Amino acid sequence: MAQTRFAPDRGLTSRMVATMFFIGLLYVVVVGVLVVLLKGAWAFVLLFSGALFIGQFWFSDRIAAFSMGAREVTPEQAPELHAAVDRLCALADMPKPRVAVADSDVPNAFATGRNRKNAMVCATTGLLRRLEPEELEGVLAHEMSHVAHRDVAVMTIASFLGVLAGLITRSAIWSGFGRSNRDSNTAVAVLIVTAVSAVVYAISFLLTRLLSRYRELSADRAAALLTGRPSALASALTKVTGQIARIPTRDLRKAEPFNAFFFAPAFSKESAARLLASHPTLEQRLDQLSRISAQLGRP
């Protein structure tokens, strides 16, 4: 597929490859657990696991969009939003994604899609009400850079696959312990595979979070360079972060499970370790944009 005019990021590419390697390793371990616990049914396990993986790849983006209440809109329904996306597509030389709006007062945006041809960019009604045109364009450029770098597909698969793998592992463990009284060898096997699975899952989780933080910085950088207005993106970041703090906690908690997809985290605790955060801190993002402004010679 042809390259876009978004600035390439080899660091992001290498991190995505490493993350998917570990996620794939986790998936293999989960399959191993099922094979151990379901003796004589390995063909079913492999078939089920393969179907699950394909299902995640093809439908997880739609599930995410549906869960976040994204509603596709026409140029007549959202002219300013479509106009901003059109300008960015012309700048980036990339196909226009589907454009959607989510009816939420939480000011945010996200992108989904396996590739550029079936991507969708969504802004919340809260974001559209609060941002100036240049700020909105900066946010949309950030989201479209995720599509251009293909990290939307990687994060979608990694996030959903990790959750499902964890659920399958726990189900397999419970099933195995239920039979352990009759088969001590099975009990030992379950304990060993469970320990390995837990370690791999923990590593994969941390690596996914590390990738998530890096991809946000990468998207900020690519958006600032494409639009040439890092100050507009910095203003949007400051405004969105400040406005999110005023949203009722119950509404933020509803959006929290989708933080990895958002432009800015919907809910985060000051006491939470940075190692577990899905986004870099506001200070890190603003500092990077400030350096880009200095490089471009713009205020």
Rank of each mutant, 00 (worst) to 15 (best):
M1K: 04
T4N: 08
T4R: 12
F6D: 02
F6R: 00
A7W: 02
P8W: 06
R10L: 11
T13D: 05
M16F: 08
V17Q: 15
A18N: 03
M20Y: 09
Y27R: 08
V28T: 15
V29P: 01
V31A: 12
V33E: 15
L34C: 13
V35H: 12
A41H: 12
A41D: 07
A43C: 00
V45P: 01
G50K: 06
S60Q: 14
D61A: 13
I63E: 02
A64M: 13
F66P: 00
S67I: 13
R71G: 05
V73M: 14
P75M: 05
A78N: 04
A78T: 04
L81R: 04
V85H: 00
R87E: 15
L88G: 00
C89A: 15
C89N: 07
C89M: 12
L91G: 10
L91P: 10
V99L: 11
V99C: 03
V101G: 07
V101Y: 02
D103L: 07
D105M: 06
F110K: 08
R114E: 00
N115L: 06
A123W: 03
L127S: 01
R129W: 06
E132I: 01
P133W: 13
E134Y: 11
L136A: 11
E137I: 09
E137V: 10
G138I: 04
L140T: 11
V147R: 06
I157T: 09
I157Q: 03
S159P: 01
W174Y: 15
G176W: 02
F177I: 05
G178N: 11
N181R: 11
S184Q: 13
N185E: 13
A187R: 07
A189W: 13
V190T: 13
L191K: 08
I192P: 10
I203Y: 09
I203N: 08
F205V: 06
L206I: 12
R209T: 08
R213P: 05
R213K: 09
A223S: 11
A224I: 07
L226R: 09
T227Q: 10
R229D: 15
I244C: 03
R246G: 07
I247S: 05
R250I: 12
L252K: 15
P257T: 01
P257K: 03
N259K: 04
A260S: 13
F261S: 08
F261H: 08
F263D: 01
K269P: 01
E270W: 03
E270N: 04
A277M: 00
D287Y: 04
S290N: 15
R291M: 12
R291C: 06
L296M: 13
G297C: 06
P299M: 09
